[in-house]
């Protein structure tokens, strides 16, 4: 995926959505890879003591998925300037199928190209669980 966008983006463009099921295996793989071994992210009993129905995805996973959402859409031609604020509104638990979505909300000229402001979010069957603003630079 090194290609550039087929056409320049415009405000209001919608990013192709990504669907991903949350299984305990995925959370364990994620913990091993991102080094966040907090128990609530792989131990459902601990997660339930925190009010979740099961083990739930950690912040590093959500940030990484938002990064994937942007790369899937824009390819390799952009650089990440800012991710956030990322706000956690609800747990993303084992058994959920998450849908990551987004749209372009602003395009501004900057010194070395354009800055694209993206409004991203994650949904489960309980509605929006996470929101995240992202700024990328297209040189």
């Amino acid at each position: 995926m090194t290609e550039k966008l087929a056409k320049a983006p415009a405000v209001g463009d919608v990013l192709p959505a990504i669907e991903i099921p949350i299984t305990l295996q995925r959370l364990v793989m994620e913990a091993g890879a991102n080094r966040d071994f907090s128990l609530m992210h792989h131990d459902s009993a601990v997660a339930q003591s925190a009010g979740a129905s099961a083990a739930f995805a950690n912040t590093f996973f959500l940030m990484g998925m938002f990064e994937r959402l942007v790369r899937n859409w824009a390819g390799s031609c952009i650089r990440f300037k800012k991710i956030g604020p990322l706000k956690m509104l609800n747990f993303n638990v084992v058994g959920d199928t998450l849908l990551f979505r987004g749209k372009v909300v602003a395009i501004d000229e900057v010194e070395r190209g354009e800055k694209w402001l993206l409004n991203l979010w994650c949904e489960s069957e309980r509605g929006q669980t996470t929101t995240c603003m992202v700024e990328v630079i297209k040189e």
Partner: peptide, 18 residues
Amino acid sequence: RWLEPKEFDCAIHTDVGA
């Protein structure tokens, strides 16, 4: 290993040439 659980496919993270 970080890309794997996210099913994240972007060659700049795996291929020097890309």
